[in-house]
Design a protein around this nucleic acid. Structure first.
Lengths: 333, 333
DNA sequence: CTGAAAGCGCTTACAG
DNA sequence: CTGAAAGCGCTTACAG
């Protein structure tokens, strides 16, 4: 591979001039610029970006921490990140963390070792050994830690869950089960709060025994549905905290000989591509997945350039999408 | 940030010794090692990997070229890549190319600029300006270019498609429509060849007018289904080249008042997570998505280390998964 | 086992 | 506008 030295020799100029031709062409005379360009073409020179990054102390790379890249919601968020990053001249390093703190820290450390300039964290953890570490530019999107000063891009999950719960309540459901995400997640907590709020406003009682935990997988939704449906007093509607668990719950419900929504209403969250195509099509909350990514990347870009973002906490819009997995409660006239 | 210089000063040794303590600890005496370790902890030293990479001329990074990261099949492949890469000490850069040659070349160039050590290409293109360029370690997985010497990880798509077609034929279908992937794709060509082969063996004729093109999206599957079903002599079965297009075709078929599989059988390809949960559950070909990734990464690793892989063309197993979207042809006794 | 020194390929004040 | 020179933070022959 040709180096800047080779080009300078062939062009008969200094390496400084070659460097300038590349980075600050207006600081070089028209004539010199041409000579250098020719030499670059002749030698097929490609600047060593690794050397440049090393020299300028920036990698033009961001690392994204994602619990599971194969999750259909996250993969769309990442597509959004990638698109913005590309426009801004950044590369994106993939950090599939499985939600493990160790991996999060390992990947986040890439900023300290100069391999990345900033971090986008899609999970509800601070990915540093020391929670008060401020040395790395970071933005927290999707599932956001409460009470930190990390900038965030999120949904108003309380309001969204409340809206969904109100939909269920309006159909006459009084006994509502919950298939919840894992504990220690802001998303999970907020969605539960929204549900409780709606229940309370309707004069209904929330029963903690109606809450089953899942891990966002189809399988866990099915398992949780069994628990719920085998209760002495089973719920007439199940509020699921994502679409995959809802799909699992629907399948399980049907397996047990029950009809959705005839016997049981089931709702999801996210509106993934397939929500519309399962049987029955899923009532859910839609979120602009890509925009979580583009907004997070835009904010991170500002942070990496030392400007404080105007709005440190961005809330994205949601929508209740009513399809056929929810219907009137059975004993409701 | 502390540098190796700071550590050496505090430990009272040379920077060479600090460097060795980190990379070749057995070349350093027990005692020195301890002193250095203490100094490292005291200064909270983290080696600058960017500097190390620059110095050693390797980035320990691979770039993956993927047409669409949000595609559920590819996202699983990438998960496989990431997991293997992590074990081998490599980071993975995401190159969402949208299938555009320009972007492929841009990302592939990262090897020339030292930002990456190797490439995994998941699409059916050679990502170099010059098709004969051999300067970058690369492996081609999933949709593989024919007649190059890039190592490949692929399915025997001819055999898989033949198996699916035989299933359809065995159900009495004689007039089979095809919703095809884009042209100039080995996957598309091979799956079509497999279908033709099965047809031929059964003494059936393949009609080119029965082939509609899609782009692997749900929407394109629906559009193609309209074309097929509005023909004068519509097919009784539709062979789709991926699951998303099959899901779109099913939805469209139902919208037109037809029953699947009562009136029309529809088959998919890939067995994505949701294939089992659409209505009706999809008959499809399952493929070990993650293994495309792990195998590709393993091969690339060998290539980057200068060893030729034993087997340059890996074929992964597939399976026909019969569910309810396919059934007996209507006029077949 | 250890240290002094060269050097990886760039960029960027500084001087002219 | 241009060049000589320093230096980014490491690693690695080489010599002892």
């Amino acid at each position: 591979m040709a180096t800047i030295r080779d080009v300078s020799r062939i062009a008969g100029v200094s390496v400084a001039t070659v460097s300038r031709t590349l980075s600050k062409p207006d600081k070089v005379s028209e004539k010199t610029r041409q000579i250098v360009q020719e030499a670059i073409e002749k030698t097929n020179y490609k600047p060593d970006i690794l050397a440049r990054n090393f020299r300028t102390r920036k990698s033009s790379t961001v690392v994204v921490l994602v619990p599971d890249i194969a999750n259909p919601f996250f993969s769309r968020v990442i597509r959004g990140i990638e698109q913005s990053a590309q426009k801004m001249g950044y590369a994106v390093l993939l950090g599939d963390t499985q939600g493990l703190r160790d991996r999060e820290i390992t990947y986040a450390n890439m900023v300290k070792t100069s391999q990345a300039d900033g971090i986008i964290q899609l999970d509800c953890h601070i990915p540093f050994e020391d929670k008060n570490d401020r040395s790395a530019p970071i933005v927290n999107a999707c599932d956001c830690v409460r009470g930190t000063d990390m900038p965030t891009v999120q949904l108003d999950n309380i309001a969204a869950a409340e809206k969904m719960a109100n939909h269920l309540i309006s159909l006459g459901h009084k006994n509502i089960g919950v298939i919840s995400g894992p504990e220690n997640s802001t998303i999970t907590n907020d969605r539960l709060r929204g549900l409780k709020k709606a229940l309370e406003n309707a004069g209904l009682e929330y029963s903690p025994s109606n809450r089953m935990y899942g891990d966002y997988s189809i399988h866990s939704g099915a398992m949780a549905a069994v628990e719920l449906l085998e209760k002495e007093n089973p719920p007439s509607a199940i509020f699921c905290m994502n679409d995959e668990m809802a799909i699992g719950a629907i399948r399980q419900t049907k397996k047990m000989g029950l009809n959705v929504p005839g016997d049981i209403s089931i709702s999801g969250f996210d509106d993934i591509n397939f929500a519309e195509f399962c049987d029955p099509p899923l009532t859910t909350i839609s979120q602009p997945a890509e925009e979580f990514g583009t907004n997070a990347m835009t904010m991170l870009f500002e942070l990496m350039n030392g400007t404080e973002p105007e709005n440190k906490n961005i809330y994205l819009p949601f929508e209740l999408v009513i399809r056929n997995s929810t219907g009137r409660a059975r004993n409701d006239p």
